[in-house]
Write a protein that binds this DNA or RNA. Structure first.
Lengths: 179, 179
DNA sequence: CTGCATAGTTACCGACCGGTCACACCCATG
DNA sequence: CATGGGTGTGACCGGTCGGTAACTATGCAG
């Protein structure tokens, strides 16, 4: 899959030929389905977005109706992702890599990040947090920071304390502590 | 300067010819000073590191002997950098962009980030924070996260509340509040 | 003036890039 | 059998990449 190649070599670091070959096809057929490499990039990011969005359903399924448990679950799931996905967030990495401000992928990235942000803030609100937006923003920054920090300094860096930091943030913004 | 071109177009996005031209010279002369583009990248990152390291001296000069004020000053300075340097951290961006794990730039990046981390943790310690490493890690993650978040969703995203999040983190980890 | 190191110029190298072309192919539907 | 649409193939386009060779121009020390 193209996502994997973009992840491993970077969007600019992989050629269309190699992508086609990895898909057990050839460049011409690939160009008949996607008009350009930029289209392919957008489609790959959309695919990654869709997969990431599924996490919210799993969270709801794991702790049905218990928003506070879902919030704790979010921290847990994200912490595990930090270890299992050492390349960081494909969407954020693409935002860093694609400097052309008019690249169509930027719209995909922004849509996805805004949606995630909205869902997280909503979860915080349902969990009875005093300042849901502030907590959601803090958790987002901690997550993005942990991912890029892991790329820069490895697993021994600041990202080691991601869970600690999240718990402190939740305590700080949650107001009255639940059970 | 090459730093600026790497920042604006990405390390892979700018060619040696363009760098030479921007330096009012030509490719051959440039290759006589730097053995390869990778060397040039490392040198540019080292240069950026050195400039960034100067911030610590300014912080000490602004609040001599007052570690707690320096810590608040760190948040203030970093918050201003978020606005004045919308491209994010050159070192972190390079870590995202350079996927080859054996690229010499990774050593430069890791050294710099580790040094920053050590200095920040030391500042936290001198400020009498209960858990200096935990606070330093949290602040680092918030900063890196704010920068990449700004690249992904612009100035209206989570990075808007960077200062709020930092203050909450400081409160959470500082223990007894100072004056 | 003579050397010599440095820098500038131009052309070039092989490799790869994103993207397109013409053409053979396969296979299902009619 | 015929036809037509999707697929595979390989050559090809112009352009750019990082890096080098050969030669010239410049400036400075002896």
């Amino acid at each position: 899959m193209a996502c994997e190649l973009f992840r491993q070599h970077g969007i600019r670091g992989i050629g269309v030929d190699a992508i086609a070959e990895a898909a057990d096809t050839n460049k011409m057929t690939l160009y008949r389905h996607f008009g350009s490499k930029d289209d392919l990039i957008c489609e790959a990011l959309r695919h990654t977005s869709a997969k990431a969005a599924a996490m919210w359903d799993e969270l709801e399924a794991a702790h049905p109706g218990d928003a506070r448990a879902q919030l704790d679950g979010w921290v847990e799931v994200r912490s595990q992702c930090l270890c299992s996905e050492p390349f960081g967030c494909d969407l954020a990495n693409a935002a860093v890599e694609l400097k052309e401000s008019d690249h169509p992928a930027h719209a995909v990235i922004e849509n996805f990040k805004n949606l995630q942000q909205k869902k997280l803030a909503d979860l915080c609100r349902r969990a009875g947090v005093d300042e849901p937006e502030a907590l959601a923003d803090t958790l987002s920054m901690l997550l993005e920071g942990a991912r890029v920090s892991r790329l820069a300094t490895g697993s021994e860096g600041p990202s080691m304390r991601f869970v600690r930091a999240c718990e402190a943030a939740i305590s700080a913004f949650a107001g009255a502590r639940p059970v």
